[in-house]
Design a protein around this nucleic acid. Structure first.
Lengths: 254, 254
DNA sequence: TGTGTGCAAATGTCCAGACAAGATGTAAGG
DNA sequence: CCTTACATCTTGTCTGGACATTTGCACACA
């Protein structure tokens, strides 16, 4: 039998996996909007020139990932982030997340000079009205491209000359500052709080509206004052995999 | 075509589900010992007088549950609890997660029947005024004898007969209940909250007054209702520890 | 002794088709 | 107007095949 051509070029994945990826892409692109019904198995079967079995195998994945829900007599419906159960989402891809969570990269979204309002001043350990540099970014998983946490770092303006030459710095900021500002960290203040996730972060991370987060606040203090203060907003449902990492990392000598 | 008789009597479950239950029972009974290979798909197909597709559907479940692992060219191997991939378990039970990570043990401090007040009722998923059994305890590290977390588990009174024979049960309660109450966990609800640590726990764990905690709430839900609800109070500084590990993982090279 | 080759067996992938069962809209009948 | 029966579309279940891919092992060969 003449081999059917691959749906994706240069691809040796099984057919159902190729179809599954294509459909996943379409979901991301909004080709099948949230709440709508996807084409029926028969239609997909015709479009991809594959048997219903193969289509079903692809759809099975989408269901297990929580992208769609299927009902007999109705069809395959794209479900929204709000109706999606975070349980199954994280649950089904445990192994995947496991590896994914280790390799990460950080993307700076915005650098801006801001004046501290009183509340923020207390948090970062500065004075109200003082100008600080705010660096906002998102840490992503290398493989899956999923957001891990939103990060905001505040650096006093007197240290701006230290961070400015490194707009693409990937590592911990405090290391950069400690080294280049020739300062010694004397104290690290940490605080964890439960907070609603800021609205723009929700959009940024693609979370469901009303998400809340665990906020980790850190202040690195030198003898000359606060060197840097950072906020990490972790989506609450991802807290679980921080724990999982903990577990997997415990065995090898760290 | 003459209807094939059901494998289980008085049963309207689909064939693959019946076969799956049968095989699961055999695994429990040790018919297929841990480490051994189960019969091949072809053999099972012959025994149950079903097509290979149907057998595979049943085996798929066993694999997803972590009972067996399947390898092309080899077969379907029964895997033990210890070698079993942490796929299902690690996510459903924090207790077990910690057990694997570091050596811990659990001490039950108190078992008491309590009536739910409205707030508690909502948390555990019961009705206000209902009587539930509360099991309180502390999980300790084996080596250092340090408290890891305070645990309170709530079990509906109708399940008390299941837990009563095991006052010294060390493992995850939900396993005990799932097995002995013959119930299947259909849903796990998780919630993380930041809360002040209850005063008696503070004393119990030897923490400083005013300590606060991360509370992890879990509800294991079966078709008959909530099987067990558990609260884990983790001292906040240990949560920080978890996160610090996470952070150190982002930049392995110092 | 070690090594490679080929075969058999097992699961993985895929097909075309069949009927069951649930959901929904429509038309006939009260 | 409401109800019931039916047609139709969907996914769920199941069959009996086919070939691909991986693995383990026996066997021949150097």
């Amino acid at each position: 039998m003449a081999a059917k051509e691959d749906i994706l070029p240069h691809n040796s994945l099984p057919r159902y996996a190729q179809i599954q990826k294509q459909l996943e892409q379409r979901l991301m692109d909004g080709v099948y909007p949230i709440g709508s019904l996807m084409p029926s198995e028969q239609e997909l079967s015709a479009e991809f020139n594959s048997s219903r079995t193969t289509i079903r195998e692809a759809l099975r994945y989408l269901r297990e990932r929580g992208y769609v829900e299927r009902r007999q007599g109705v069809g395959t419906r794209v479900i929204s982030d709000t109706t999606r159960s975070t349980y199954f989402q994280s649950f089904t891809s445990l192994e995947e997340l496991f590896q994914v969570a280790i390799d990460t990269y950080y993307v700076v979204m915005e650098i801006k000079t801001v004046a501290l309002d009183p509340e923020l001043a207390e948090l970062v350990g500065g004075l109200a009205g003082e100008e600080w540099v705010r660096i906002s970014g998102v840490r992503w998983t290398e493989a899956g491209g999923k957001p891990i946490c939103y990060v905001q770092s505040y650096v006093p303006k007197r240290c701006q000359h230290v961070v400015d030459p490194y707009p693409d710095h990937q590592g911990p900021l405090f290391e950069l500052l400690e080294r280049n500002a020739d300062a010694t960290i004397e104290e690290v203040v940490q605080e964890i709080r439960a907070l609603p996730m800021p609205a723009d972060f929700i959009r940024q991370l693609g979370l469901k509206p009303g998400s809340w987060s665990m906020q980790l606040l850190r202040r690195y203090v030198t003898e000359n004052g606060v060197l840097i203060a950072s906020f990490n907003w972790h989506p609450a449902d991802q807290m679980t995999y921080l724990m999982r990492i903990h577990r997997s990392r415990e065995q090898p000598a760290d």
